[in-house]
Simulated assay, not measured.
Amino acid sequence: MSLERARELVRILEAQMPERMPAPPNTEIGERFDRQLIEGQGRRDGRDIHMFPPHLRTWFDTLSAEDVQKLERLMAVKAETVAWIDAKNGRELQKLDGAVEFITSSRTAAKVLIWIGGMAVAFVGGVAALAKNGIDLFSMLRGGR
Protein backbone atom coordinates (compact mmCIF):
# COMPACT_ATOMS: atom_id res chain seq x y z
CA MET A 1 0.00 0.00 0.00
CA SER A 2 1.39 3.40 -0.94
CA LEU A 3 1.70 6.27 1.49
CA GLU A 4 -0.86 8.33 -0.43
CA ARG A 5 -3.35 5.46 -0.34
CA ALA A 6 -2.79 5.04 3.42
CA ARG A 7 -3.43 8.75 3.98
CA GLU A 8 -6.63 8.56 1.95
CA LEU A 9 -7.79 5.58 4.02
CA VAL A 10 -7.05 7.53 7.22
CA ARG A 11 -9.10 10.48 5.91
CA ILE A 12 -12.03 8.21 5.11
CA LEU A 13 -11.90 6.58 8.54
CA GLU A 14 -11.52 9.97 10.19
CA ALA A 15 -14.61 11.26 8.40
CA GLN A 16 -16.67 8.31 9.64
CA MET A 17 -15.21 8.31 13.17
CA PRO A 18 -17.32 11.11 14.78
CA GLU A 19 -20.49 9.24 13.85
CA ARG A 20 -19.37 6.07 15.58
CA MET A 21 -17.27 7.25 18.49
CA PRO A 22 -16.00 10.71 19.49
CA ALA A 23 -12.22 10.71 19.58
CA PRO A 24 -9.52 13.36 19.58
CA PRO A 25 -7.75 14.03 16.28
CA ASN A 26 -4.70 11.84 16.79
CA THR A 27 -3.89 11.15 13.16
CA GLU A 28 -1.11 13.71 12.95
CA ILE A 29 2.09 12.20 11.60
CA GLY A 30 5.72 13.13 11.29
CA GLU A 31 7.26 16.38 12.48
CA ARG A 32 3.89 17.97 13.17
CA PHE A 33 3.04 15.19 15.65
CA ASP A 34 6.47 15.46 17.28
CA ARG A 35 6.03 19.23 17.63
CA GLN A 36 2.59 18.77 19.24
CA LEU A 37 3.99 16.16 21.64
CA ILE A 38 6.86 18.42 22.66
CA GLU A 39 4.57 21.44 23.06
CA GLY A 40 2.22 19.31 25.14
CA GLN A 41 5.08 18.57 27.50
CA GLY A 42 6.17 22.21 27.59
CA ARG A 43 9.49 21.31 25.95
CA ARG A 44 11.12 23.17 23.07
CA ASP A 45 14.44 21.38 22.83
CA GLY A 46 13.21 18.02 21.52
CA ARG A 47 14.33 15.84 24.44
CA ASP A 48 11.89 12.98 24.88
CA ILE A 49 11.02 12.75 28.58
CA HIS A 50 7.24 12.44 28.48
CA MET A 51 7.36 9.02 30.14
CA PHE A 52 9.02 10.23 33.37
CA PRO A 53 7.17 11.43 36.48
CA PRO A 54 6.69 15.19 36.88
CA HIS A 55 9.39 15.68 39.54
CA LEU A 56 11.99 14.09 37.21
CA ARG A 57 10.78 16.14 34.23
CA THR A 58 11.30 19.31 36.28
CA TRP A 59 14.77 18.16 37.28
CA PHE A 60 15.70 17.22 33.68
CA ASP A 61 14.62 20.68 32.52
CA THR A 62 17.23 22.27 34.80
CA LEU A 63 20.17 20.15 33.56
CA SER A 64 22.61 21.60 31.05
CA ALA A 65 25.15 19.67 28.97
CA GLU A 66 27.90 20.55 31.47
CA ASP A 67 25.73 19.30 34.35
CA VAL A 68 25.22 15.98 32.58
CA GLN A 69 28.98 15.62 32.06
CA LYS A 70 29.57 16.32 35.77
CA LEU A 71 26.96 13.72 36.73
CA GLU A 72 28.59 11.16 34.43
CA ARG A 73 31.96 11.82 36.09
CA LEU A 74 30.38 11.41 39.53
CA MET A 75 28.75 8.15 38.47
CA ALA A 76 32.19 6.88 37.39
CA VAL A 77 33.53 7.23 40.97
CA LYS A 78 34.37 3.96 42.72
CA ALA A 79 31.64 2.43 44.88
CA GLU A 80 33.95 2.48 47.91
CA THR A 81 34.42 6.24 47.55
CA VAL A 82 30.68 6.82 47.32
CA ALA A 83 30.10 4.64 50.41
CA TRP A 84 32.82 6.53 52.32
CA ILE A 85 31.29 9.92 51.44
CA ASP A 86 27.81 8.63 52.27
CA ALA A 87 28.99 7.67 55.76
CA LYS A 88 30.10 11.27 56.51
CA ASN A 89 27.84 13.84 58.13
CA GLY A 90 27.56 17.48 57.06
CA ARG A 91 30.20 18.79 59.48
CA GLU A 92 32.75 16.21 58.33
CA LEU A 93 32.05 17.04 54.68
CA GLN A 94 32.67 20.74 55.39
CA LYS A 95 35.97 19.84 57.02
CA LEU A 96 36.76 17.70 53.99
CA ASP A 97 36.14 20.72 51.74
CA GLY A 98 38.61 22.70 53.88
CA ALA A 99 41.17 19.89 53.61
CA VAL A 100 40.83 19.84 49.82
CA GLU A 101 41.39 23.62 49.67
CA PHE A 102 44.44 23.28 51.95
CA ILE A 103 45.94 20.51 49.81
CA THR A 104 45.34 22.50 46.63
CA SER A 105 46.98 25.62 48.08
CA SER A 106 49.86 23.52 49.45
CA ARG A 107 50.49 22.07 46.01
CA THR A 108 50.51 25.57 44.54
CA ALA A 109 52.97 26.75 47.21
CA ALA A 110 55.19 23.72 46.55
CA LYS A 111 55.30 24.51 42.84
CA VAL A 112 56.29 28.12 43.59
CA LEU A 113 59.00 26.98 45.99
CA ILE A 114 60.37 24.53 43.44
CA TRP A 115 60.63 27.35 40.89
CA ILE A 116 62.30 29.66 43.42
CA GLY A 117 64.78 26.93 44.42
CA GLY A 118 65.56 26.12 40.79
CA MET A 119 66.13 29.78 39.99
CA ALA A 120 68.42 30.18 43.06
CA VAL A 121 70.53 27.18 41.99
CA ALA A 122 70.71 28.51 38.44
CA PHE A 123 71.72 31.95 39.73
CA VAL A 124 74.50 30.60 41.93
CA GLY A 125 75.76 28.36 39.11
CA GLY A 126 75.66 31.29 36.68
CA VAL A 127 77.55 33.56 39.08
CA ALA A 128 80.24 30.89 39.61
CA ALA A 129 80.60 30.30 35.87
CA LEU A 130 80.77 34.01 35.09
CA ALA A 131 83.29 34.59 37.90
CA LYS A 132 85.57 31.82 36.63
CA ASN A 133 85.30 33.01 33.05
CA GLY A 134 85.78 36.61 34.15
CA ILE A 135 88.98 35.71 36.00
CA ASP A 136 90.23 33.77 32.98
CA LEU A 137 89.43 36.69 30.67
CA PHE A 138 91.15 39.17 32.98
CA SER A 139 94.28 36.99 33.16
CA MET A 140 94.38 36.74 29.32
CA LEU A 141 94.15 40.50 29.00
CA ARG A 142 97.05 40.96 31.50
CA GLY A 143 99.18 38.71 29.36
CA GLY A 144 99.15 35.56 31.43
CA ARG A 145 98.54 32.07 30.11
Results as ranks from 00 to 15, higher is better:
69 Q>E: 15
44 R>V: 09
78 K>G: 13
90 G>R: 08
88 K>Y: 02
54 P>M: 12
51 M>Q: 06
90 G>K: 14
69 Q>C: 03
53 P>M: 04
87 A>V: 00
84 W>L: 08
92 E>K: 03
101 E>F: 00
91 R>H: 09
102 F>L: 12
72 E>V: 06
59 W>G: 03
84 W>P: 00
47 R>D: 01
98 G>M: 09
82 V>G: 10
72 E>I: 10
102 F>R: 13
81 T>E: 05
74 L>F: 15
55 H>T: 11
80 E>M: 07
101 E>W: 02
64 S>K: 13
101 E>P: 00
43 R>I: 10
52 F>A: 13
92 E>C: 01
99 A>F: 04
101 E>H: 10
94 Q>F: 04
45 D>L: 06
104 T>S: 06
55 H>K: 11
43 R>C: 02
89 N>F: 01
47 R>V: 15
67 D>C: 00
85 I>Q: 04
100 V>C: 04
55 H>P: 08
91 R>T: 07
56 L>E: 05
92 E>G: 01
64 S>Y: 01
89 N>M: 04
55 H>C: 08
73 R>Y: 06
100 V>P: 00
47 R>N: 07
70 K>D: 08
67 D>T: 02
72 E>G: 04
95 K>S: 08
71 L>S: 01
95 K>D: 14
73 R>G: 09
43 R>F: 07
102 F>K: 12
80 E>F: 04
90 G>Y: 08
74 L>Q: 05
78 K>E: 12
98 G>N: 11
54 P>F: 10
82 V>E: 09
54 P>C: 03
52 F>M: 15
49 I>G: 00
57 R>K: 15
45 D>A: 09
78 K>T: 12
58 T>V: 13
53 P>V: 12
44 R>K: 13
102 F>V: 00
103 I>K: 05
79 A>P: 02
100 V>L: 15
